[in-house]
Design a binder for these strands. Sequence first.
DNA 1: CCCTGATTCGC
DNA 2: GCGAATCAGG
Length: 254
Amino acid sequence: MSWTDERIDKLKSLWGQGLTASQIADELGGVSRNAVIGKAHRLGLESRPSPVKAGDGAAPAAPAAAAASAAPVAPPPAPPRAEPPAPRPAPAAAAEPVRAAPPPRPAPTPAPEPVRAAPAAAPSANAAGAAPAAPAAGAAPAGDQPVYRSIGPGGFQRQQPGEQQAPIPPAPPRRLVPAKPAPEFADKTSLLDLSDRICKWPIGHPGEPDFHFCGDPVNPGFPYCVAHCGLAYQAQLPRRDRRPPPLPFGGPRR
DNA sequence: CCCTGATTCGC
DNA sequence: GCGAATCAGG
């Protein structure tokens, strides 16, 4: 396969839509993922966030590469690609990539505050109980008994060198109280209100004060109401048949 | 392991 | 110019 104008156009288009190189390669057929990437770069297409250099601008200077080519001439200090933070705003607006369109995932439950904290299972004896031999004031330990010094309400600390042990962490003086539903959410659909019959579409964001769920009756067979199904599900045609103007969502059930 | 994009380098 | 091989992070 060669890079005809058509194929190049398609590559540009798909690349611009955010499809991965693999997907584009599938779409085009006859080329490998590498070929797509190579071509894209040669075309000067805007690079996309790579898992390799995703993070901050920690420019990983001249990487391996040079290894193979036993470069006789020492490469100069070489400013490692002063690539600026690339303000890639992403087209987003119009052409939402049909495929990778991240539907506002039904937020996996916002973890409603751990009401019941750890059972405080067995931090093996907290303060009170296990402390070996509380030293009554001046109680002189007989013989080679280690000496303990109270370090507060949490426990004791050995004083003899060589016999060290992490002090027992004081138990948190907190009293755990069952969470009560904030009154201002009374009419909102909370996590606890979710069921098979009501729309679980999240409204707002977990952690925000007014986060709640849609709560409308579901589109039977779906976790969301009809309206939100429209947002959550988008028609996914077989690759071969996909065309730029994507069909409206809400296609027939599988 | 899988995936990803970037890069190199022989062709 | 092309793309397999390789790298490196998720």
